[in-house]
Every structure is written in C-alpha cells, then in structure tokens.
Amino acid sequence: MEQKEIELLKLLEKNGRLDTVTISKMIDISPEEVEQMIAKLEKENAILGYSTLVDWSNVYEYEGVAALIDVKVTPVRGVGFDKIASRIYRFPEVKAVYLMSGSYDLSVSVEGRTMMEVSRFVSEKLSTLDTVISTTTHFILKKYKHDGIIFDEDNDDDKRIMVTP
C-alpha cells in the first residue's frame, strides 16, 4: 500500500484537481480506496492543503510584489531558532520561512501589494523583533519557474504531428 500512497501523493502534488475516478484507474485501486487514502494522508498531515499555482503577472490589472529576505537572528537557549521563526511566520504577508545553512539564518518570503508595503513590513515588523540582528531584502523581479512549473511557456503546446506510425 505504501507504494500506492506515494504514487497518489505525486499525482496530487502535480495536479490537485485530478478527480478520484481518474486517479483510481491510474493507480489501479477503487475510487473508494482513493478517498480513504486521501482522508488518511490528510489526517497524518502528509497532505496539508490543495492550492493553485497562479501566474499573477498574467492577471489583468493585478499589482503585487514579492521579496526574499535574509534574516540573521540570535538563537535563544532552549528554543534555538524555532521561537523567532514562529513569531515571523504568523504574519499573514509571510508566505514561507526556512532555516538555512550558510551566512544567514532564516529565509523569509514575503508578498505585498506594493514595494512600499513590503518595505514597511521589513522596517516596522521584522527588523524590530528582539532577536533579529539584520535583514537583507531582495525583491523578485521576474518569476521564471515556481514549484516545478515553468512560467511564460505554453505548456499545452503539442508540437507533434497528428498521426504517425
């Protein structure tokens, strides 16, 4: 069963909208078993949610900016980086937080409507936190690829000729 669960997860990771019946045929189990398996994986927190990858640059009149912020912090005895990380990741404008190896500690991904909004978040909320030593903000200029999907490419474009031997 383990193998089928992984197969199911990989399919859903690529396409969260794949319907149960299709999945059941693809991995050769019944639709009910697919439902049960998904319920189980949700319960075990293997599946945390279902989202849609949007290329906002293709959405008319939508304005938005994203930034990656390198954050250096002072770890605290007993809780290490976890406590400060949790202070940061609870802000709704923070989309991702990772503890990093290398020259800084936390990598924070932030989204906002304008550069001003993101700047204000960094100067007023993030850098004023107790254990934060420094921040370096990098604004994202263009997204080429995100979560394995290449942006700006016509992915459905089949370049093959219609019928071949």
């Binding site: 093959r160 000729i161 219609m162 019928v163 071949t164 031997p165």
Partner: peptide, 18 residues
Amino acid sequence: FFDLASKMDNVISLGVGE
C-alpha cells in the same frame, strides 16, 4: 488519417506514435 485529422479543429489525437 493524418490528412483528415490535420484539416479539423479541436481534435484529440490518440494516433501519435511518439
């Protein structure tokens, strides 16, 4: 079939051998 299919729109081809 290639000739026929190429003239039509909105065709889903299960005829491709690659």
